[in-house]
């Protein structure tokens, strides 16, 4: 669907994206994980043709670079910074963006209606965006990316500041859209979100791709062994081992185990091991 080949982008002397290559497959949710300044938003901008790469090639479904207007018509983007007209109402914002993408008449009305429902703003459609809470604006920002039914949508940290119920609803909706054939590129700082909806995840830092695979495969390869944590009469015992059951049995033979649990590696472990820093800095 979207292919980046040896893409490089620098702002002056600072290299934001460095020799980055990956391919997003049609119909998958592709996660883009990385610490602040890793180059996620820059990658998104390159993917939607807002930026042109200094080197390398971006191609959308064999149609060519997204800098071309006819390729762009198939794209939707929810920028990290809210991109809305605050003095327009929710409905007016969506109508405007739908028109810009060429929708007319009943098709437009139907799409606007669906987008309002997606954002959960149907009953506040006639209110100006400036009067919305941060989370409502975020939801409207996502809806504006989807209103014209793109075949590839890039969501740059779309759920920051959205409450858990709304976030759940949005994630469910994204999965439903994916099941209906939409391809999604999703950048986030929330590991559990990535683990929940991403079919594959790319971890990048300093503009370079560190790993790319399914969440399970990433954990299996980079998460390290499970950790057995046991409380004995002698104190707390931590042991990293590929076979925690055997380790527990060994421990129980030498001491009285009062309590124990196994810490399995998750995406955050993977991330820490790969980047050397925590996401939530």
């Amino acid at each position: 669907m979207l292919t980046l080949e040896n893409v490089r982008k620098a702002y002056g002397a600072r290299v934001a994206v460095d020799d980055l290559s990956f391919e997003v497959r049609a119909g998958e949710v592709f996660g883009l994980l990385g610490p602040n300044g890793a180059g996620k938003s820059t990658t998104v901008s390159l993917g939607v043709g807002l930026l042109e790469p200094d080197a390398g090639r971006v191609d959308l479904g064999g149609l060519g670079a997204p800098t071309r207007p006819e390729v762009r018509a198939r794209l939707g983007v929810a920028p990290q910074a809210l991109a809305l007209y605050e003095d327009l109402t929710a409905e007016e914002n969506l109508r405007f963006f739908a028109r810009i993408f060429g929708l007319r008449g009943t098709a437009l009305a139907g799409r606007v209606e669906a987008a309002l429902a997606l954002a959960g703003l149907t009953d506040r459609r006639a209110e100006r965006a400036v009067t919305f809470s941060g989370g409502m604006k975020r939801r409207l920002n996502i809806a504006a990316a989807l209103v014209h039914e793109p075949s590839l949508v890039l969501l740059d940290e779309p759920t920051v500041g959205v409450d858990p119920q709304s976030r759940n609803a949005i994630l469910d909706r994204i999965v439903a859209l994916r099941d209906a054939g939409l391809t999604v590129i999703y950048t986030t700082h929330y590991m559990e979100e990535a683990a929940r909806i991403c079919d594959r995840v790319a971890i990048i830092d300093h503009g370079r791709l560190l790993a790319l695979d399914t969440v399970d495969a990433l954990i299996a390869r980079h998460g390290g062994d499970p950790v057995l944590v046991a409380t004995t009469s002698g104190g707390t015992h931590r042991e990293s081992t590929p076979d925690p059951v055997a380790a527990l049995a060994r421990l129980a033979a030498t001491a009285t185990v009062l309590d124990f649990h196994v810490e399995r590696a998750d995406l955050e472990h993977v991330f820490l091991r790969l980047t050397g820093r925590s996401l939530r800095d």
């Binding site: 807002l50 207007p69 006819e70 018509a73 920028p79 809210l82 991109a83 809305l84 963006f97 993408f101």
Partner: peptide, 14 residues
């Protein structure tokens, strides 16, 4: 500055 221009620039219009 609001980013709506970027949004417009990702649309098919020039």
């Amino acid at each position: 500055t609001r980013g709506t221009l970027s949004r417009l620039c990702t649309s098919p219009i020039g």
